[in-house]
């Protein structure tokens, strides 16, 4: 049996809102030690989502036996809208379940809402992602990166990320012209999350689809910082930390044809 209780329904709501525009169907893998993990790839095979909700994400978590919950995220999203952000949210599934029970509890009133979501058999292949040695790692405020991704999408289909030891530059070239934003590393002692950290082994210059970056930055609601790991001629990793665990996006770059 699975029983996972979130202190705030908003956490799961934000997670699902961050991934459901990229993938519609995905398997939630549940286990006592790892909590709930998900790997899902978008239909175009360009963006991979790796989610890890450790047991620490939950106020209470138990999973007696490993289980896989096949979920339609659009349907799950409809149910999650029924609860309030501050509610307790509990996911309950029997062994070999054909449905997932979702329970919202208001913390002040004696209101309990229960929903049952039908599960699906989802046949999806899993990719092996080795721990890569990255050429560059950038940690910056997620709001800043989100603004760049959203603003530059109005100018161009692609966003170039150029990292040197001194700076990270985001650059877009479109029909109306071009633009760039440069960030230099800095440490904000009063607000550490406002700091910008650049670790560079080798300079990198990569280009990504603006549409995918716009999907990725939807997760900015989950964390005030984002870590971007870049390696020449390889997919980039965009990571948002959860209270315990992470939401990662791997995005394949664009190349000169």
């Amino acid at each position: 049996m699975l029983e996972g209780k979130f202190d705030q329904a908003s956490l799961l709501k934000k997670i699902i809102d961050s991934i459901r525009d990229s993938v519609k169907l995905c398997n939630f893998n549940c286990s006592q030690n790892d909590g709930i993990t998900v790997q899902a790839i978008d239909d175009s095979r360009v963006l991979l989502i790796a989610l890890k909700m450790d047991p620490g994400c939950f106020q209470e978590f138990r999973c007696d036996r490993d289980m896989v919950l096949g979920l339609d995220l659009e349907s799950l999203g409809k149910i999650l809208k029924q609860g309030n952000n501050e509610d307790y949210l509990t996911l309950i599934a029997e062994d070999n379940p054909d449905s997932l029970l979702i329970v919202f509890e208001d913390k002040k009133k004696d209101r309990i809402s229960e929903f049952s979501l039908k599960l699906m058999d989802i046949d999806s292949d899993v990719l092996t992602i080795d721990d890569m040695d990255n050429d560059c790692s950038i940690t910056m405020p997620s709001a800043d990166f989100s603004k760049i991704a959203r603003d530059f999408k109005t100018m161009s289909e692609s966003l170039q990320i150029i990292v040197t030891k001194e700076s990270v530059k985001f650059k877009a070239e479109g029909q109306i012209g071009s633009g760039s934003v440069i960030f230099k590393p800095h440490t904000d002692l009063d607000n550490p999350d406002e700091s910008i950290k650049i670790d560079m082994n080798q300079p990198v210059n990569l280009t990504f689809g603006a549409k995918y970056l716009n999907d990725i930055v939807k997760a900015s609601t989950l964390s005030s910082t984002i870590t971007i790991k870049l390696t020449d001629k390889a997919p980039a990793l965009f990571e948002f930390k959860l209270p315990s665990g992470y939401l990662r996006y791997y995005l394949a770059p664009k190349f000169e044809d």
Binding site: I41, S44, R45, V46, L47, L48, D125, V126, L127, T128, I129, S158, T207, G209, A234, P235, Y250, A252, P253, K254, F255, E256, D257
Partner: peptide, 14 residues
């Protein structure tokens, strides 16, 4: 002209 690459060319199926 830029061409979008696929994750399949970087990651193997598990």
């Amino acid at each position: 002209k830029l061409k979008q690459s696929s994750l399949n060319s970087f990651f193997k199926k598990a």
